[in-house]
Amino acid sequence: MSFLDRIRACNTHDFSAYRPFEVDGVRIGWIRHALAEELPDVDPGFVVSAGRVTLAPEVRDFEARSAVLAHAAAYVVEKGLARKLRGEFYPVLPRWGVEPLARIDRAVVAHFGIAAYGLHVNGFVRTPAGLELWVGRRAMDRGVAPGQLDNLIAGGQPIGLTLAENLVKEAEEEAGIGPELIAQAVPVGAVTYLMENEHGLKPDTLFLYDLELPPDFEPRNTDGEVETFERWPLDKVAASVHDTLDWKFNVNLVVLDFLVRHGWLTPEHPDYLEIVHGLRRSAA
C-alpha cells in the first residue's frame, strides 16, 4: 500500500455511466443513465435526452428548481437507492462563491453528482518530540465509515450557513470547542477529489483548517459521531495512513496535506509531486 493508493481511491470514476445534469446551460452534476431515464416520470420539470439531463424552461427560480429536486430525492428513497432523507440541505452551485441555484437534500447529493463542500480541522499540539495530531474514531452506528479514523472536527457545508458559522457549529458538536478557541483556527487551503461510489459521483471540496491546541486540551464529542479521541505523533499518523485502511476515505487526503505542509512528507519522497498534485483534482 502507499500514499498514492489513498489518493487514487478517492479519484476513481467512469463518466461513460453518466449523463451531465445542466441548469441554464451550466453543468451542475452527473446522473446515472438508468435514473436519468426515470426522472421525467417523477417530475415533468426534468427534460432528458440521450446526451444530458436539464430542467424545463419554466423551472426558472430557486424555489421551483428546489421543488423538482425534492420530488427526485423522495423518489430516490422510495426506489431504495438511498436509505432516508436527511432533512439537511446542501446548495446547488455552479461554482463556489456564487448564489445557489437550488437546494438538495444531503442524502441524494451523490445520486445527482452535485458538487458538495465541507470543512475539516486538523487539531494538533506541539511537543518537545514534535507535532501530535488529534485523531477521532467514528462511532459504529454512523452510516458512513463506522469505526474508522477521522479528523478532530469535520462536517459538510449546508446551505444557509457561512463557513465561519459552520465551523463554530461543528467545533462545538464534534469536539466541545467553543467560539473563542475555534476562532484561532487558520484556513490553510482545500483538497478536492472526484470519486464514484454506490450512489453516484462525488465531486467534493474540503476546506482545511489548522488549529494549534494547548497540551492540556481534551476534546469532548457532543453529537454522538465520535466514540473516542487519541493524540498521535506524526510518525504513527503517517504509518497508519500508508499501511492501513483504518481512516475514513477522504480524511486520508486531509492528513496527507497536513504531512506535506508541516514538513513530515518532503520532496525526497519519490511520490512527492504526484501526491501534491493529486490532492487537488479537477471536478471535470
Score class of each variant (00 low, 15 high):
228 T>G: 04
208 L>R: 07
233 P>Q: 06
264 W>T: 00
148 Q>N: 12
240 S>W: 06
148 Q>L: 15
33 H>E: 04
126 R>I: 06
271 D>P: 05
76 V>M: 03
35 L>R: 05
119 L>E: 10
189 G>L: 10
264 W>K: 05
186 V>L: 15
40 P>L: 13
25 G>E: 13
58 E>I: 00
281 R>N: 13
52 R>I: 02
21 F>Y: 11
53 V>M: 02
141 D>T: 13
186 V>D: 05
201 L>C: 00
177 I>C: 12
110 A>G: 06
169 K>Q: 15
195 M>G: 01
267 P>R: 00
13 H>A: 07
11 N>H: 10
129 A>M: 08
97 G>P: 06
168 V>Q: 15
136 G>D: 08
192 T>L: 10
152 L>D: 01
121 V>T: 06
144 V>W: 12
160 G>H: 03
266 T>C: 08
219 P>T: 09
9 A>V: 05
233 P>L: 01
119 L>G: 01
135 V>P: 04
189 G>S: 08
50 A>W: 10
53 V>D: 10
249 F>H: 11
120 H>Q: 12
261 R>D: 12
54 T>K: 01
21 F>K: 03
156 G>D: 07
257 D>Y: 08
165 E>R: 11
279 L>Q: 12
117 Y>R: 03
200 G>Y: 02
17 A>H: 09
79 K>R: 15
134 W>C: 01
181 L>Q: 09
137 R>F: 07
274 E>V: 09
250 N>C: 00
231 R>E: 05
140 M>A: 15
140 M>S: 11
101 L>H: 11
2 S>P: 07
32 R>K: 12
94 P>N: 08
135 V>K: 13
87 G>F: 14
137 R>S: 10
38 E>K: 14
202 K>C: 09
213 L>T: 00
175 A>V: 06
232 W>D: 02
155 G>C: 08
264 W>C: 00
69 L>F: 13
78 E>I: 00
244 T>H: 03
14 D>I: 03
262 H>R: 15
13 H>V: 04
78 E>W: 00
261 R>F: 07
134 W>F: 15
78 E>T: 04
32 R>Y: 03
66 S>L: 01
271 D>F: 02
99 E>S: 14
100 P>V: 08
15 F>V: 04
159 I>V: 14
155 G>Y: 14
204 D>W: 02
135 V>W: 15
203 P>Q: 14
214 P>L: 13
97 G>T: 08
208 L>D: 01
4 L>Q: 05
42 V>D: 10
261 R>A: 05
137 R>A: 09
75 Y>R: 03
15 F>H: 07
175 A>I: 03
19 R>L: 15
86 R>G: 14
65 R>Q: 02
206 L>H: 12
135 V>N: 10
253 L>D: 02
206 L>I: 12
65 R>I: 10
55 L>Q: 01
48 V>L: 14
77 V>C: 04
88 E>A: 14
41 D>K: 04
71 H>R: 15
253 L>I: 07
194 L>D: 00
159 I>Y: 14
94 P>K: 15
227 E>K: 11
18 Y>E: 05
22 E>T: 09
96 W>P: 02
54 T>G: 07
153 I>W: 11
61 D>G: 07
64 A>F: 05
252 N>G: 03
193 Y>L: 11
82 A>V: 11
251 V>N: 03
172 E>N: 06
263 G>H: 08
174 E>A: 04
47 V>P: 00
118 G>D: 13
117 Y>K: 10
119 L>S: 06
